[in-house]
Design a protein around this nucleic acid. Structure first.
Length: 704
DNA sequence: GAGCCTCGAGTTCC
DNA sequence: CTCGAGGCTC
């Protein structure tokens, strides 16, 4: 059996994954034995966690390969600082936010437009308080609670079955439920529970929790689930995931049904028929907010009818049929101690206010972004000013305004730096742009540092043990100057000092050499594992201007291999040439992005960086993900009118099945759906010999 | 050419 | 999470 340990989970083939899961099951179980017996464990907790995590990650990718003796099935059997990953059968989406009444009115109008409803047709909405807690998903099979998971990133969460099982008021079994039922809702801690907890914490000489949401999060993620049980967490159900047999047709009926199944639902929930009713509800609940025993941060509206919800579908991260109407953010007054500027990887110079720490929105805030030059000037913010701050969307602190009445004396206006504070190069603002940028490029140490940080970041190379702190440290020491240096680190470290080796070698540093050696070994293992990398991650990691995750993927998809891509980029120097035309023909790439790509590869230094990486790594060709949909990966074009759905709906539907929807017919088009009244597009399709379907044929193809 | 939507880049705190 | 900007659609 070949050694699969070094291979990144995402590039494992199915047969390899099967082998690897078998090995992990044996290995983990062997370590469990050692741990629970009298023998000392053979490996560190971190290394053990890494094994379990890898097991969980592979299982999340290949759920059908989960073994009967899988280590993930005996959660809690061993000490673990990591929870196993769980892949949600249906993604847990987040909600679009609104802050003003007009945005709510716009939301309802948009729903109407999308569905093609008449002006006078009512859109019933279910409105309920938005609990400020943690989303969780509870899975029942044959009426029995089998698994609980956190929301995580929406696609993959963490297995907290044991913890959720301790929640009082959640049914363990339900009678008359479908075979599979996933109930979703919010876990929260109410005021009495929070106060009791902090009294207990204090008595035990432990620090008090600062806010209820953190307390709830901490309580839910206890490794010892019995502790969770003592925390008196609450739960309100509001939605569902996978359901084998759905017996409700509206959100309202769903809530009634799960109440019968003994799930707690929020008693303030109300079905509203009009905008006025919705806004009144918002105002009423807002007035009551302080009297409630639990924290809420807004009101959620959902289109009641499920057939409408289905037609509305969703845009990348949130459904079109729901909206979170937020309450105004909590504000606080504090003082600006100093205004500093930071230099990002693209050279963007961003101002940050260092604040006298202040408690707002549940946390201590001591920094706040000032966005850009114009923002500082318009709000006339100066060092030493008293300012109002708030947490935007209850997360990112921002300075709302300066309280000029409290200004002492006449502090000077803030002078925005005209040169880069890190390298002294000119800092310029392009015509019409909001940001000022350092023009130093590669000579600017800040930019190079930030490029490295981006390279190892989570969505790029994501090397365990090589986070921001580590990479900056290696940079300061001059050990890593370029991305490729990362992959030469182990070799340099093993070289004697007089032959250019690292002195002293990494494992000989620090107070605890033994511990250090382990983490150094882990670091090298992590680096080795990333010598295999997908093309899309690789392109994203390069940090080309305007190329983020999506565009990286788009390019990978269109060019297939690194060699093919590079060749195309070097050939595309002429904006009138064929290679350039091909680049700009990609849906989502316009002249600016194309220029940024060509510029990047025209730069000698970048060429060398990519050459060196190419030599040290295996960049995997792009593989089309397996989907069973017949149109996955195809480019389709709609033309003419459609009868059973609007154009927007058809497009959303096609995209959710993995297709790309283009606006016009070209030789890259795979399929054209012809509605009545189609004109030139239909003709062009026939000329190019592209497959065409009528609306019914299309519906048959996609199965609905 | 205007108005939408999506993407990229930067940021905070735990 | 937000803002600005790029790209696409009408």
């Amino acid at each position: 059996m070949s050694d699969l340990r070094g291979i990144a989970v995402e590039s494992l083939k199915k047969t390899q994954a099967e082998q690897e899961l078998k090995r992990l099951a044996q290995e983990i179980s062997a370590h469990d034995g050692l741990y629970h017996g009298d023998d000392a464990p053979e490996i560190s907790d971190q290394a053990y966690d890494a094994l379990r995590r890898r097991n969980g990650d592979i299982e999340a990718r290949f759920p059908d390969l989960i073994r009967d003796d899988s280590p993930s099935k005996n959660v809690g059997a061993a000490p673990s600082t990591a929870f196993t990953k769980v892949r949600h059968a249906q993604a847990m989406l987040s909600l679009d936010n609104a802050f003003g009444d007009d945005e709510v009115s716009e939301f309802i109008a948009r729903v109407r437009r999308f569905l093609g409803l008449a002006e006078d047709e009512a859109v019933a909405l279910v409105a309920e308080p938005k609990i400020d807690g943690l989303s969780a998903s509870l899975r029942y099979e044959a009426g029995k609670f089998v698994q609980g998971a956190t929301r995580g990133d929406g696609t993959t969460g963490e297995d907290i079955t044991a913890n959720l099982a301790t929640l009082f008021g959640l049914p363990k079994t339900i009678s008359g439920a479908p075979d599979v039922l996933e109930v979703r809702g919010e876990v929260y801690m109410d005021r009495p529970a929070f106060e009791a907890l902090n009294i207990a914490q204090e008595a035990a000489g432990k620090p008090a929790y600062i806010n209820r949401r953190n307390a709830a999060a901490g309580s839910l993620r206890q490794l010892d689930a019995s502790i969770t049980g003592t925390r008196n967490l609450g739960f309100f159900a509001y939605s569902w995931g996978e359901v084998s047999d759905r017996t409700w047709d509206t959100q309202w009926d769903f809530l009634k049904q799960i109440s019968k199944w003994k799930f707690p639902t929020n008693p303030l929930t109300k079905r509203c028929e009009s905008l006025d009713e919705v806004l009144k509800y918002y105002a009423d609940i807002g007035a009551k907010r302080g009297d409630l025993e639990y924290d809420i941060d807004g009101i959620v509206y959902k289109v009641d009818r499920l057939d409408w919800q289905e037609r509305l579908g969703h845009v990348s991260h949130h459904p079109r049929w729901a909206l979170a109407h937020k309450f105004p953010a909590e504000q606080a007054e504090t003082k600006i101690l100093k205004i500093e500027v930071q230099v990002g990887r693209t050279g963007a110079i961003t101002p940050v206010a260092r604040l006298e720490p202040v408690f707002v929105g549940g946390v201590m805030v001591s920094n706040a972004t000032l966005h850009n030059e114009d923002n500082i000037r318009e709000k006339d913010i100066r060092e030493g000013d008293t300012v109002i701050i708030q947490r935007a969307g209850d997360v990112i602190p921002q300075v709302v305004e300066a309280v000029t009445e409290k200004r002492k004396g006449r502090p000077p206006k803030f002078k925005y730096p005209q040169v880069c504070p890190e390298c002294g190069s000119a800092a310029v603002r392009e015509e019409g742009e909001a940001v000022r940028r350092c023009t130093g490029g590669l000579i600017c140490p800040a930019q190079r540092k930030e490029r490295l940080r981006h390279f190892v970041s989570r969505d790029a190379f994501d090397i365990p043990g090589l986070g921001e702190k580590q990479i900056f440290q290696f940079w300061e020491e001059g050990l890593i100057k370029e991305p490729a240096d990362i992959f030469d680190l182990e070799r340099c470290n093993s070289l004697p000092a007089d032959q250019g080796g690292i002195d002293p070698p990494l494992q000989d540093r620090g107070a605890e050499p033994g511990k250090r050696a382990k983490s150094v070994a882990n670091l090298f293992a992590g680096i080795a594992a990333r010598r295999d990398i997908s093309l899309e991650r690789f392109l994203y990691a390069l940090g080309i201007r305007h190329v983020g995750q999506t565009t990286g993927r788009l390019l990978a998809q269109n060019y297939g291999s690194l060699a093919g891509f590079r060749e195309a980029m070097t050939a595309a120097t002429d904006p009138d040439g064929e290679a350039w035309a091909h680049l700009e023909a990609i849906d989502g790439i316009g002249p600016i992005v194309a220029q940024a790509l060509v510029d990047f590869f025209a730069e000698g230094h970048n060429e060398k960086v990519v050459d060196d990486l190419d030599a040290a790594l295996t960049v995997q060709d792009f593989v089309q993900p397996d989907t069973d949909s017949p149109i996955a990966g195809k480019t389709v074009v709609f033309t003419g009118s459609l009868e059973t759905m609007t154009r927007d709906e058809a497009k959303a539907r096609a995209q959710s099945l993995g297709a790309k929807v283009a606006g016009s017919v070209s030789k890259k088009t795979d399929l054209v759906i012809l509605g009545p009244g189609s004109g030139s597009k239909g003709k062009k399709a026939t000329e190019l010999g592209i497959e065409t379907l009528d609306e019914q044929g299309w519906l048959d193809l996609i199965g609905g």
